[in-house]
Write a protein that binds this DNA or RNA. Structure first.
Lengths: 117, 117
DNA sequence: GCACTTGTTCTAGTCCGCATAGAACAGTTA
DNA sequence: TAACTGTTCTATGCGGACTAGAACAAGTGC
């Protein structure tokens, strides 16, 4: 499991951390039931504060993706289903609409690239 | 033209204002060439500061949706086609969801590229 | 030309969320 | 029991959001 953050990003660090784990679950990098790195370890590895990591973990718990328990750490819930399918569906709808407007593939991908920047 | 904002929303007020106008253009509530309410008027109507409204307007100008000119006010660009604005909004929603999932820009654009092929 | 409107720019202040920091606490595991 | 791990608490510094007031400049309409 790999968590990377960008200190220069406008997105809060805790959000980046939860997003990284969320993505890991979504794409299957992190299996249901798997244990996440300890908050203190991850904080040290990322060079951020313990509380920042814990906040990210708590966001994931609020979403029902992980369980947090003292002494045991953070564990991915077994019923945490990947959410990528929904995103893929949204992409499909977007592409259809773009086609209807006669936009080229490069124009659409450029729009996405700009929006992601 | 109707702009509504929610002071309790975590979204910044200027973002809410630009989003409302963006949506108005997308759904055809605001026609191309139409003049937006004056920043001072809208600020008074919404109970926010002039600078907050202007910041929202400037975001729209950065996206190429409106033109701002002293003395003339804010005007929806004639080439700001509602359909394209709608697509832009769809892209925006998609990107936000992708961000929530922690997907990278390349991962998303790759998904779109595949879907367009 | 002149008054008025409207966006632009500048400075300044308050408020709140983000992140950091340290410490003590309470379950869990070996 | 000892080590580990999340939980809770207090405190501090920083930066963005928002407000506020003022002066300025370009356009409009009489």
């Amino acid at each position: 499991m790999l968590v990377r953050i960008d200190p220069d990003s406008p997105a809060p660090l805790h959000a980046q951390i939860s997003a990284a784990v969320r993505r890991g679950i979504a794409v299957g990098e992190i299996a249901p039931g798997e244990r996440l790195p300890g908050a203190r370890d991850l904080a040290a590895a990322l060079g951020v504060n313990l509380h920042t990591v814990l906040r990210g973990y708590q966001e994931l718990r609020a979403e029902g993706l992980v369980e947090l328990r003292r002494g045991r750490g953070a564990q991915v819930r077994t019923d945490a289903a990947p959410a990528v399918a929904a995103l893929r569906q949204a992409v499909h709808a977007l592409v259809e609409e773009a086609r209807r407007l006669g936009l080229s593939a490069t124009e659409v991908t450029e729009m996405v690239r700009e929006a992601m920047a």
